[in-house]
């Protein structure tokens, strides 16, 4: 597994954990008598902030941790360069495109739910869910492209 694949795998696992946390909380709220604005807003905040942290700080931490693991494994002081070449960039772009398409479908479903009489809280919850699902689908498509070669 290359550095890029490991980094995407870490991002995928983090996004999966976030989406599970989000869905479990939403489900619990629904069971406890419906969505309450204050609780839903705080849940959105947690999910959005965690996603940003995963995308920025997670990447940096992954880089550092992988460098340490590489140094321990090879027992050398030589710093491994994790270069990103043209194929990595193309795979990244394809992944972003897949994420964008998945997110667009999610936005459409959220809008339709509102048009068919669901409250705005449900619509926005679906929007946030589709953004994280879009990231997950993008990560999976990138891993698939790396496994396939391109």
């Amino acid at each position: 597994m290359t550095y890029q694949e490991k980094s995407i795998a870490v991002s995928l696992v983090s996004h999966l954990l976030i989406v599970v946390y989000y869905l479990v909380n939403l489900f619990q709220m629904q069971q406890a008598g419906g969505l309450v604005s204050a609780k839903v807003f705080s849940l959105w905040a947690i999910v959005i902030v965690s996603t940003i942290i995963v995308n920025i700080i997670g990447n940096i931490l992954t880089n550092i941790l992988l460098s340490i693991v590489h140094a321990i494994k090879t027992r050398s002081e030589h710093v491994e360069k994790f270069i990103e070449d043209e194929r990595d960039k193309l795979i990244g772009l394809k992944g972003s495109k897949v994420s964008y398409i998945a997110f667009s479908i999610g936005v459409l479903i959220a809008m339709l739910s509102f048009a068919f009489g669901q409250p705005p809280l449900v619509m926005f919850s679906l929007l946030i869910l589709s953004s994280i699902l879009g990231e997950i689908i993008g990560d999976i498509s990138q891993l698939y492209l790396y496994q396939k070669g391109f």
Binding site: T2, I83, Y146, G149
Partner: peptide, 22 residues
Amino acid sequence: VGVTRQTIIAIEGGKYAPSLEL
């Protein structure tokens, strides 16, 4: 040539067509 070994593997296997520059 300034790429990863995986890219060379993909080129050799005919899975990836490199840019003109590469």
